[in-house]
Simulated scan of single mutants.
Amino acid sequence: MPVTIVRVSTQDGTAIPNGGSTSSKDLKVSGKAVLADQAIQITNNGIQVGYTTAQTDTTYMADVSGLAPGLYNFVASTRGGQEPSDVWKVTVED
């Protein structure tokens, strides 16, 4: 079972649907890991942009900050890119 992304939101909690857009440059990516206490990385086109550790219930939340305007293809995975999630696309507007 892969890592999943279940929500991307702004810092104030406004949800951004997959394929949606926002003017916020600081986002939160949350979802479910495979195991409790598992290291989770968030990547954009293969480059790490966030990192966190799953809670005991396997949920995680990672801050992704300082984003420039453009399209982001977020993927959550375990350390080393194992068990990757589906892509969650977000456009950060100028």
Rank of each mutant, 00 (worst) to 15 (best):
Q11F: 05
D12T: 15
V64P: 08
D37N: 13
V92T: 05
G50P: 08
V64W: 11
Q82G: 11
K28P: 00
V92I: 15
S24Q: 08
K28N: 07
T22I: 08
I5S: 05
P2V: 13
V92Q: 12
M1T: 14
G81T: 01
L27T: 12
R79I: 10
G46T: 06
P84A: 04
G70H: 13
K32T: 12
V49S: 03
Y51M: 01
T56F: 05
I16S: 00
L35S: 10
S30K: 14
S77E: 00
T10A: 01
G80E: 08
D26P: 01
T52D: 06
A76H: 11
M61L: 08
D12E: 14
G20S: 05
N44T: 07
G19T: 08
K25Q: 11
G31S: 10
P2R: 11
M1Q: 15
T4Q: 07
N18V: 03
N18G: 03
L67A: 02
K28D: 03
G46Q: 08
F74W: 11
V92S: 04
A36D: 04
D86F: 07
E83S: 12
T91Q: 12
G19C: 03
E83H: 13
Q38Y: 06
E83N: 14
G81M: 04
V3F: 04
K89C: 02
V29Q: 00
Y51W: 12
M1S: 10
S65Q: 14
T58S: 04
M61T: 12
L27H: 09
T43V: 12
A62D: 02
N73L: 08
V49T: 11
I16V: 12
T14V: 15
A54K: 13
T59M: 00
N73S: 10
T58D: 03
D12S: 15
Q11G: 02
V87M: 00
W88R: 09
I42R: 07
P69R: 13
G50H: 06
G19M: 14
E93F: 01
I40S: 04
R79H: 11
I5N: 03
Q82N: 05
G46E: 08
S65I: 14
S30F: 07
Q11L: 15
Q11T: 15
Y60S: 01
A15G: 01
S85N: 12
A33Y: 07
Y51T: 05
M61G: 03
K89S: 05
T58W: 02
V87W: 08
V34M: 04
V34D: 01
F74E: 01
E93D: 10
S21A: 11
N44F: 10
E93K: 12
T59P: 05
D94I: 07
A68W: 09
V8C: 06
A54G: 09
D57V: 10
T10M: 03
I42P: 00
V6Y: 09
